[in-house]
């Protein structure tokens, strides 16, 4: 018996619908017999009639509706068909949901699921990683689960949180990542996880890049290097303490993210480590991100646009030499 990352997301939603009558799922193609573009809600409309609802292609109004429902006692889960399309709902997410508690003292408990990141052949509009944009604005919690277990427990936690949560689920992990069974509990949001212990170099990353970083650690182990991999789990709030403790052990920091290079989660980690833990560093911190271009369609281009074990390992080796 094994369960995939995608099945864990579906199971978490089934549990939420079963356990909490305030929960409903709202998004394009999530309902009926279809169950979503990636089948993350397959069968749920039949099991929970009237609570898994198809919507028009209206990202702004989908999120606006979720905000209104949340203000009046519901716990909506919005599925964006692709993270990329959430740009059409930025106003509702950033300006409405993100400001609401601070302005009115009334929180907005919505969860927005973003099928994120690149898969082969998906091109510029079906591959984006949006976490840095949402983390930049105040008022939102941004989750980036990297494991089947986190995909499950963090989605359940997201719905329980009284504030808006942007839950970035990685499409590449949907089918590639499997676990033996679902956990009954996990680390809380806001806590990073040491995915692999090491003493020579810390790789701080999140989402699908955790798997790439673990592959790099395995490869470099054969050369005698012990790489520590920190899985942030939530990019906001950012668990600076766990990152600093790791850098204190290794003296070297490499940040890896799949999103574009200008600013963002990896830059934030480096900014915090250099300002709060400069004395811990034996070498200048480095990072690996996607290229500063739109995301290419052809696999030949995509394979060098996105960070991967090869490009991360090359950067890690350089950093270990310093």
């Amino acid at each position: 018996m094994s369960i995939t990352y995608l099945e864990a997301i579906r199971e978490a939603q089934a549990k939420l619908l079963r356990d909490d009558e305030r929960v409903f799922i709202y998004g394009q193609d999530v309902g009926g017999t279809f169950g979503g573009a990636f089948k993350a809600t397959k069968g749920l409309a039949r099991e929970f009639p009237g609570r898994v609802l198809n919507t028009p292609i209206s990202e702004d109004a989908i999120v606006g509706t979720a905000i209104g429902a949340a203000l009046h006692g519901m716990r909506p889960i919005v599925e964006m068909q692709f993270a990329d399309f959430s740009s059409l709902a930025l106003n509702q997410i950033l300006n409405n949901a993100g400001t609401h508690y601070w302005r009115t003292n009334v929180p907005v408990p919505i969860t927005i699921r973003l099928p994120s990141g690149g898969t082969k052949g998906s091109g510029p509009f079906h591959s984006q990683s949006m976490e840095s944009i949402y983390a930049h604005y105040p008022g939102l919690i941004v989750m980036t689960p990297a494991t089947v277990e986190d995909a499950y427990t963090m989605l359940i936690e997201a719905v329980a949180i009284d504030d808006p949560v942007v839950y970035c689920e990685h499409k590449y992990l949907y089918y590639h990542l499997k676990a033996d069974k679902l956990p009954t509990e996990g680390l809380p949001a806001g806590k990073a996880r040491i995915a692999r212990e090491g003493r020579d170099l810390t790789i701080v990353t999140y989402s699908a890049m955790v798997q790439e970083a673990l592959a790099v650690a395995e490869e470099l182990a054969s050369d005698g290097f012990e790489i520590e991999v920190v899985d942030l789990r939530t990019v906001k709030p950012l668990d600076t303490d766990t990152v600093l403790a790791s850098v204190a052990r290794t003296g070297r920091l490499l940040c890896v993210g799949e999103s574009f290079p200008w600013g963002g989660a990896t830059a934030e980690v480096i900014a915090r480590v250099t300002s709060e833990g400069f004395h811990l560093l034996d070498a200048p911190p480095q990072r690996v991100n996607a290229k500063d271009t739109p995301i290419p369609y052809h696999p030949n281009l995509w394979s060098v646009h996105r960070p991967n074990a090869k490009s991360i390992a090359a950067k890690a080796r350089n950093l270990l030499r310093e």
Binding site: I67, A69, H72, Q92, N95
Partner: peptide, 29 residues
Amino acid sequence: PRQGQLAMISHLGAMVSVTVGALMAKRFK
């Protein structure tokens, strides 16, 4: 908001769907 008077944002049109959502919540309940 708890008394039913929604707090507008400056971005016009945004409060229509928020009103829809509040009404859906009432129907759900």
